[in-house]
Design a protein around this nucleic acid. Structure first.
Length: 890
RNA sequence: GGACACUUAGCUCAGUUGGGAGAGCACCUCCUUGACGUGGAGGGGGUCAGGGGUUCGAGUCCCUUAGUGUCCACCA
């Protein structure tokens, strides 16, 4: 039966059907197979609360391109999918949801809350997965994992206990970043600094004289951005080198309002150049002051509650909010005459990246991962190239973080997450860290324990993702075969949160690095270059784009014209272009199918017939080159360049030239050999081009492929095209390029002269070179098909050509079109003179280069040869134009 | 304060070992040719931010200036 396609490509009709077929046929599924080489990618697990956004689309498209390509290349390709429990994000969302229903999380209690959370996971966790499928992602869904499934839980506990035993995990009271709204500690990576307009309050504390009296004349003045923390001041610091304050050394000041005596300590931390060279020290609420406090054995007075209101240590301010208290204290100091002045001041304030609440540094007992040793192999991996970051500039960002790394605070005062496997003896408080609750206290023999209420940072489990998903801590075959993985694809925004932590975790627990290459992508921005955000409401919904233009168009848009790691702007005109391309491919295929005889076997598996003509060789040669280059680009992760080449080949070479050039042969079935050769070439080139395109546009390529095939097959499991020496036809390539040049010249002249397309004209090709005439003789019909020729004649001399014919000059030949009634000789002379001038310029440039001795002695030989060839061509053309001008001027 | 990136056609961007400036969109002219008007043919438009250097040769490498953006950083 004759195969047919619709007139336009309608992605909506086919995408879901094809995806379902792929899943049913298990094409995405990978099993250990030692006869094949593995290629593994683990998905950056999307949050269960998440809704598909452009960031996912970017991630997914790049991964899917790589995995589909490698699968076609014969690798045993595994794309390991899964989702993340996203501890804090999910907990906040559920808490808010409960609040709307008038339910308070604390009143509800931990157990009930977790039940609710699991219900939530069941209900919404699948949404994101079904959305990923809309993009065409070829993940092995049979292997789908969740960061809080049984296996991952086991891995997390294993790691925690092991690292605790090795001393890499410890509990300590230290300054942590505290979010007063989420009421949990957060890691340094989760703090986002925002430039905020604030004030610098200049305050003075009175000195305590040697006799113990409070001075009314001697003060020590300093500036602060946070006056309310004075409630927790336990010292004032000066630089030991600072001569201005030498009389104050060893003395004390009185902390007003609170009436506490504070020592004046000397610490080189104080910058003499800044302000007055004096710093008030609040060890409990500032990380630097905390360090100073440790060095000078200062008291640590916490003045804040978990919600950032003032606690009992704040005396009469107890219960006030931190900012309310600030105003009250400033007012009181002013009344006491201790406020010197207020300056406007802009400074960086740490905020929580989730809720943007100003973070409060507080001393808390938390669990930490000791980083100094762990980070070393992670630095080495990138330094020595064992892990390659793309683009390479990411190295610096990476090292900047590793060089300044601090211990990682991993405990969170949340419920949704992996609970810390630490147990406290109810009687003596002994801490036992173990996989299961201990039976007997090793210290006091008591049998009652309470588990640590805290959970772990989400990224603690994500850090294990590449190996826990393959079965670790068990020694599975999957792990041995698929690990380490090959490429990680992710946004540069989570390099610190995730990438680095996976690298050191993997090295620590697996003894090897988790992947060989990290391909970073940027952000997708709106048409004005703004970040897409909920508050701006400028987010573009990928599902809507798919609905309107198709998943292939979305994918192509995302990967086109973007260098690795760069942000991109997204707007519909770009997607329209991608959709148009899908339609172009569709219609080219449709045309080919229309010309295939009924019941004829598809040419795909047939050997090359003998009757191929130069133009067939030409397109095969072009295809061959494209195959080679595209594969090379993809190997270097230059996906944008690769797809551009496929696009150009299909649209410019195949559709605009080749198909047009073979049409006469298709419409004329008298010459069966030529007809067959054309059909074979059309199909062969199409199939190969579709294969090159498939990783980028899986749906349209599959639909065409399957329609074209006789048997039920899939392009996604077909072989990736390989460069073949026997498809190289250098001479034919050159010949067709010459014809194209002549055709373009004729079209050009006709447009310039405003000749209606309907007006055909006889075309004479004149050349004194036999091989050139041969080329045009075999290519005669191209002039008729492409250059409005009624007839074409190839000859050596000018016999029979009117003197005033229009001429098109190319290197080896001159094409004459007699248009006597239309030709304005002076205009013709002008046109040719212009061309002559242009050539003169080129010739000059070329001659300059070739007469430059240094160029000749230093440039590579092939470059010189290339330049000589060009010069020759220019000279030939130039001479012919000169000759033609002479004729016309007679 | 440090680091990184960007500055190329009206707009958005490619341009990866340095060797005659590209694409898409927009714009102008023409085309109801039997795959496609989501198309075809032709065209206009750029001193590749400014300056200096290396080189036979620089959009591409080095230095510098200016503008923009991002990340990092405890200066109270």
């Amino acid at each position: 039966m004759k195969k047919e396609l619709e007139k336009t490509y309608n992605p909506r009709d086919i995408e879901d059907r094809l995806y379902q077929k792929w899943e049913e046929k298990k094409y995405f599924h990978a099993e250990v197979d030692k006869t094949k080489k593995p290629f593994t990618i683990v998905i950056p697990p999307p949050n269960i609360t998440g809704k598909l956004h452009m960031g996912h689309a970017f991630d997914q498209t790049l991964q899917d391109i790589l995995i589909r390509w490698k699968r076609m290349q014969g690798y045993n390709a595994l794309w390991q999918p899964g989702t993340d429990h996203a501890s804090i994000a999910t907990e906040v969302k559920i808490t808010d949801e409960l609040k709307k229903q008038g339910i308070d999380k604390r009143e509800m209690g931990r157990e009930k809350f977790l039940e609710k959370a699991w219900e939530w996971k069941k209900e919404y966790g699948g949404t994101i997965v079904s959305q990923l499928k809309k993009l065409g992602s070829s993940c092995d869904w049979d292997r789908e994992r969740f960061t809080m499934d049984e296996g991952c839980n086991e891995a997390v506990t294993e790691v925690f206990v092991k690292m605790h035993e090795k001393g890499y995990i410890y509990k300590g009271s230290r300054i942590v970043n505290w979010c007063p709204v989420c009421k949990t500690s957060i890691s340094d990576a989760e703090v986002e600094y925002e430039e905020q307009a604030g004030h610098l309050w200049h305050i003075k504390y009175p000195l305590i004289e040697d006799d113990g009296s409070v001075s009314t004349t001697r003060f020590i003045e300093f500036a602060t951005t946070r006056p309310e923390t004075m409630l927790g001041d336990t010292a004032v610091a000066i630089n030991p080198e600072d001569e201005r304050y030498k009389d104050y050394r060893g003395k004390k000041v009185l902390l007003p309002i609170v009436n506490r005596e504070l020592p004046i300590v000397e610490d080189s931390y104080v910058d003499m150049e800044f302000g007055t060279g004096v710093v008030k020290i609040t060890p409990a609420h500032d990380p630097n002051d905390f360090e100073v406090g440790k060095r000078h054995n200062l008291q640590e007075i916490n003045v804040l509650n978990d919600d950032a209101t003032i606690n009992a240590n704040g005396g009469k301010f107890e219960g006030m909010d931190r900012y309310e208290c600030r105003d009250a204290i400033v007012k009181e100091l002013d009344e006491m005459g201790l406020l010197v002045k207020i300056e406007d001041y802009s400074h960086n304030v740490g905020t929580h990246d989730r809720c943007h609440t100003t973070v409060e540094p507080m001393i808390k007992a938390q669990w930490f991962v000791k980083m100094d040793e762990l980070i070393k192999p992670a630095v080495k991996a990138v330094k020595e190239g064992e892990i390659k970051l793309i683009p390479p500039r990411m190295d610096k960002i990476y090292f900047n973080w590793t060089d300044n790394i601090r211990d990682w605070c991993i405990s969170r005062q949340l419920w949704w997450g992996h609970r810390i496997p630490a147990y406290y003896c109810d009687k003596c408080g002994e801490v036992v860290v173990s996989k299961e609750a201990p039976k007997v206290c090793p210290k006091c023999g008591c049998e009652h324990f309470t588990q640590d209420p805290d959970t772990l940072d989400t990224w603690f489990s994500s850090a294990l993702w590449p190996f826990e998903t393959l079965g670790w801590p068990h020694e599975t075959e999957d792990l041995k075969y698929f690990f380490p993985t090959d490429v990680l694809v992710t946004g540069y925004d989570i390099i610190f949160f995730w990438v680095i932590r996976m690298i050191f975790s993997s090295y620590e627990h697996m003894g090897t690095y988790p992947f060989k290459t990290v391909l970073f992508h940027g952000l997708i921005r709106d048409s004005q270059g703004r970040k897409m955000s909920k508050s701006l409401g400028n987010g573009i919904d990928p599902l809507e784009v798919i609905q309107n233009y198709g998943a292939d168009a979305l994918r192509l848009t995302i990967v086109t014209g973007n260098a690795p790691g760069n942000d991109m702007r997204f707007y519909n005109e770009r997607v329209e272009n991608s959709r148009n391309f899908a339609n172009k491919v569709w219609n080219a295929s449709r045309f080919i199918m229309m010309n295939m005889a009924e019941d004829a076997p598809s040419a795909i598996h047939q050997p090359m017939p003998s009757g191929l003509e130069p133009v067939d060789h030409w397109i095969l040669s072009k295809l061959n080159k494209t195959i080679k280059e595209v594969t090379e680009n993809m190997e270097k992760f230059e996906l944008g360049i690769a797809v551009q080449k496929v696009y150009d080949f299909i649209w410019d070479e195949f559709c605009d030239w080749y198909i047009e050039m073979v049409k006469p042969r298709l419409y004329n079935s008298d010459n069966a050999v030529s007809h067959e050769a054309a059909l074979w070439t059309l199909q062969t080139v199409l199939i190969n081009a579709l294969k090159l395109l498939h990783p980028y546009m899986p749906f349209v390529t599959e639909e065409i492929f399957c329609t074209l095939q006789d048997e039920e097959e899939s392009i996604m499991i077909s072989d990736w095209p390989v460069y073949k020496d026997e498809w190289n036809f250098t001479d034919d390539e050159k010949a067709i390029e010459t014809i194209k040049e002549a055709v373009r010249g004729i079209r050009n002249v006709r447009t310039q002269m405003n000749v209606a397309p309907s007006r055909k004209a006889k075309v004479f090709v004149v050349s004194d070179k036999k091989e050139v005439l041969d080329i045009f003789t075999t290519g005669k019909l191209f002039f008729e098909a492409l250059a409005y020729a009624s007839e074409s004649v190839c000859q050596t001399g000018k016999d029979g050509i009117a003197d005033d014919a229009v001429s098109v000059v190319i290197a080896d030949a001159t094409v004459y079109i007699p248009f006597s009634d239309l030709v304005d000789i002076s205009a013709e002379i002008e046109r040719l003179t212009k061309e002559q001038k242009k050539l003169e310029g080129e010739l000059k440039r070329s001659q300059n280069m070739l007469s430059n001795e240094k160029f000749l002695s230093k440039a590579p030989a092939e470059k010189i040869a290339e330049e000589k060839e060009k010069q020759q061509k220019y000279q030939q053309t130039y001479d012919q134009i000169t000759e033609r001008l002479a004729q016309l001027s007679k």
